[in-house]
Design a protein around this nucleic acid. Structure first.
Lengths: 238, 238
DNA sequence: GTCTATACCAGGATAGAC
DNA sequence: GTCTATCCTGGTATAGAC
């Protein structure tokens, strides 16, 4: 494992992004539209709803999921569902917005890491770890972006580019300092993101092969560093 | 450009996978269920239908596309649509099956290329070129796989693994011959596919940046070859 | 806060005229 | 071969009892 980096389990414990915390955050951020006033009740039911919604949507797609299904899968009646959101579309937007909180975690984790190579490793690991913990949210966010309103779609695209920009900046800085070789930083960032996304888009494949997040993180880091000309080629692999 | 490789335009002319050819092939493969007997009529209408279906599906998702929309967008009445497929699900499966023909083109293009490094380059270029020509089909196939029946889903997964296997084999052979260094061939193949898929999944991004397929192909090849330890590091970039 | 019952409409599908 | 008119299921959403 990389020197000074948290292991996946350590990371998971530290960020504490459990379903419950996500749902509490979602509740607090949507007090206006949610009719239930008792927090414990609301959070408990939101967990059931979101768990069911993410499961069903990720299996067959959000628009193919009917609210009747959502009702039976979550154990709440149709009527009850509508006290938590005002329309199916509203539910979609709540999930989408909540998924965006991870970006803050990502940037927070990079705080204070100055060395470009270290930043690169940290960014890759953090992104993978986050998507491992919140896989259903990431998957949903990726697959259902097209169902959003025009306006929200713009925001989703901005978010995509913002994450990518994060990698572009790291690469450029490394080039300025001279530890990365000269090359197209935007393309490097683009394919790095592609590799990171594959982890949650094709989770079944990696699960079947028993590839761990740690292993995948090491691998992606090696590939990118290799291209940037600063890899650990020749060192023993973990 | 790589020695001896076709340019994108040469490739496009050679394979001739126009919308019309795809639709003719689709017609011939579905004579049983398509009620229209005159080939020119059928192919013409299928082009309208598929063009509309791919556009709408790729914009909002297949299940969110109503047949009324499809009707007005394609210029055919509801009744006419149903002479080309027996149900919405049937339409989905026709598109999905037709998308699979590209695999044959991919393998055909590798025929006779023995050298692992050349095979790798060829496989990457061909995959990207194909997805560039048939982007709507690739995109559809990727995004709507979840709507297929259990049985067809298995087939889709097999197809995914088969393409990947193609890359795994190339890498392994290169390792046996000693031109690629020792590493996890499955992971290399996996991330290679991820990069290839990004080309059609995030087409808007590359279009906006005016990245050409040729350029992207060169780049992906460089990244993979770099990791495999056989790159052209130091040579002048095109 | 939660449920059941119901309103209402959009969607897939088809019959039969042309 | 194609269109229009229509059927009817199943979807979203709500009213009102508990």
């Amino acid at each position: 494992m990389a020197k000074g980096e948290l292991s996946f389990e350590e990371f998971r414990r530290m960020v504490s992004l459990s379903m419950e915390n996500m749902c509490r955050d979602l509740y607090l951020g949507n007090r206006a539209s949610i009719k239930i006033k008792k927090e414990p009740v609301a959070v408990g039911n939101l967990m059931k709803i979101l768990d069911a919604a993410l499961t069903l949507s990720n299996k067959k797609g959000f628009s193919a999921m009917s609210l009747r299904e959502l009702s039976s899968q979550s154990g709440l009646s149709m009527g009850a569902l509508y006290t938590y959101f005002s329309s199916k579309e509203d539910l979609l937007h709540m999930i989408q917005r909540e998924s965006a909180v991870v970006f803050d975690v990502l940037t927070a984790q990079l705080e204070g890491v100055r060395d470009p190579q270290a930043r690169l490793r940290r960014a890759i690991r953090t992104h993978l770890f986050l998507s491992e913990i919140l896989r259903p949210w990431f998957y949903f966010s990726y697959m259902e972006a097209k169902n959003l309103s025009k306006q929200e779609q713009k925001k989703a695209i901005e978010a995509e580019l913002l994450t990518e920009k994060l990698f572009v900046d790291i690469v450029r800085e490394g080039q300025d300092v001279g530890v990365f070789r000269d090359c197209d930083a935007e393309l490097v960032a683009a394919v790095t993101k592609a590799m990171l996304q594959d982890w949650y888009l094709k989770r079944w494949k990696y699960a079947r092969r028993k590839t761990t997040v740690e292993r995948y993180a090491e691998f992606v880091t090696d590939v990118v560093e290799g291209y940037l000309g600063c890899g650990r080629r020749g060192e023993k692999k973990s």
